[in-house]
């Protein structure tokens, strides 16, 4: 049962990831990436990591991809901005990525130990993860809030730079 679900989710993830990089219009790429993130959330559910699945859908599909979609629509990039395609570049990129994929998969296939994931444990539920997050990883968690605050202030400052230059000196 779960093996079949894993195969279906993996197939959908890989196909939607390929469609992200091969589709012409940026809006289609964004939508395929949202679908890919939903399948990865399905993988998290299969691993019995419910908190990660919920956070993944909320943060990635709900916040980050909406930001991407806003920027694509704001810049009006739906037209194809790559008019003269460099086929040599494309083929060499596919060959290089394929070689990397070949090396990684062959190395990972020859790993001699093959331990079984037993997802009947309750490590991914909110209670255990919250205990780890607020006891062991307390300081990084608080530093993360400072990082997010500085990223927010920095992005607002960068995007408003034109207005700052137009101010009277």
């Amino acid at each position: 049962m779960s093996q079949i679900a894993f195969y279906i989710l993996s197939f959908l993830s890989v196909v939607s990831a390929l469609l992200v990089i091969f589709s012409k219009k940026p809006v289609h790429s964004v939508l395929y990436l949202v679908f890919c993130f939903f399948t990865i959330a399905g993988h998290y559910v299969l691993l019995n990591a419910q908190f990660l699945a919920a956070v993944h859908i909320i943060v990635y599909a709900g916040a980050i991809m909406v930001l991407f979609l806003f920027v694509v629509m704001l810049l009006n990039l739906n037209a194809d901005i790559e008019p003269h395609k460099d086929n040599v570049l494309k083929v060499s990129a596919v060959v290089a990525g394929g070689c990397l994929m070949l090396i990684m998969t062959s190395v990972m296939k020859t790993a001699d130990t093959m331990p079984i994931i037993d997802s009947t444990n309750q490590i991914g539920v909110v209670k255990n993860l919250g205990l780890a997050l607020y006891q062991t990883y307390m300081l990084p968690f608080e530093l993360l809030s400072v990082l997010l605050l500085s990223a927010m202030v920095g992005s607002v400052l960068i995007a408003k730079k034109e207005d700052i230059e137009n101010l009277p000196q």
């Binding site: 779960s2 679900a5 990972m108 790993a111 331990p115 079984i116 994931i117 037993d118 997802s119």
Partner: peptide, 10 residues
């Protein structure tokens, strides 16, 4: 848990 899976890490 109905989702008990035994998928190898590979």
């Amino acid at each position: 848990n109905t989702l008990a899976n035994n998928i190898p890490i590979n």
